[in-house]
């Protein structure tokens, strides 16, 4: 009896259901990881080994020379295009965060006549498929003589994006109004309140927006393909495609390029997943 009382209680274990649950999850994880794994092992094989039968699930030997081959190609300026992608994604992320955070602050924290109507119009922009506005936008940029540059790709991000504005607005609404009032009494301007008081409270949301913008831009294909003209200007998304379409048999170099294109996004996510979880948890509690 005494032994029963002093024994620590443990939660009932449902061993069988737990095993089944984990097996199913592992199966799904394997299905999702398979293409990624295939890409990585193909990057370290020769072109012939990639399609050899039976399928080799691990490269033998590991062809490290494929890495140097990728960077040595003159018809695929990988490093240049990688730098282009970093610049493109960074600039768009910065522009998106800056403009959307300003707009969201205005919609959530400032009182002005017609605020809700303008916000409703902003949200309506989500309903317009981007392809509908693509041609007039293209003609507009052409007339400005900016085709062939990154301006048409980057500049629009400095004018806000309806989805990110909506998302940030929800976070801004959770910042206590008294914080802004206190800053106003302390003599801070509205811009300073936004920059010094409110933005630090929503940094999780900003990281998420920046991450979304980076991932989206990193993978963006259509815009750069239409607006950019030369191989040296292409970001990796377009560079990889043009290389593969011109050198269809060189699968291993393509896969190496694809691996190096995907890795930064994976690393970025690993470093920022904490913010994702925080952001989701925060919004879940509201």
């Amino acid at each position: 009896m005494t032994t029963d009382l002093i024994r620590r209680r443990t939660a009932p274990r449902h061993l069988v259901s737990s095993i089944i649950y984990h097996c199913v999850m592992l199966l799904f994880a394997a299905i999702f990881l398979l293409p990624f794994y295939w890409m990585v092992i193909s990057a370290f094989k020769s072109n012939i080994e990639i399609f050899s039968q039976p399928i080799a699930w691990f490269p033998d030997p590991i062809r490290w020379e494929n890495v140097s081959a990728l960077f040595a190609r003159t018809d695929f300026p990988f490093l240049r295009q990688f730098a282009n992608s970093v610049f493109y994604a960074g600039a768009v992320a910065f522009g998106t965060c800056f403009s959307c955070a300003l707009a969201a602050y205005s919609f959530a924290c400032l009182r002005w006549r017609g605020r809700n109507l303008v916000f409703a119009f902003t949200i309506c922009a989500l309903l317009i498929p981007p392809i509908v506005t693509f041609l007039p936008t293209y003609i507009g940029w052409s007339r400005l003589g900016l085709n062939g540059t990154y301006w048409p790709l980057i500049l629009p991000s400095f004018f806000g994006d309806a989805f990110y504005i909506f998302m940030l607005r929800q976070f801004f609404l959770s910042v206590p109004r008294e914080l802004m009032d206190a800053a106003r009494l302390d003599g801070a301007s509205e811009f300073r309140i936004w920059w010094q008081i409110v933005l630090p409270q929503v940094r999780v949301a900003l990281v998420i927006v920046a991450l979304f913008a980076i991932v989206y831009t990193w993978n963006e294909f259509f815009g750069p393909l239409i607006y950019l003209k030369t191989r040296e200007d292409f970001p990796l998304s377009v560079g990889l495609f043009t290389f593969r379409s011109q050198r269809a048999v060189e699968w291993s170099i393509s896969m190496m390029g694809a691996t190096f294109t995907a890795v930064p996004m994976v690393v970025l996510f690993l470093f920022t997943q904490r913010f994702f979880q925080q952001g989701l948890a925060t919004k879940g509690l509201k």
């Binding site: 206590p176 008294e178 914080l179 009032d181 206190a182 800053a183 008081i197 630090p200 409270q201």
Partner: peptide
């Protein structure tokens, strides 16, 4: 203020 309104950061 009622909820102190101290700048949390």
């Amino acid at each position: 203020f009622q909820n102190y309104a101290l700048y949390p950061h």
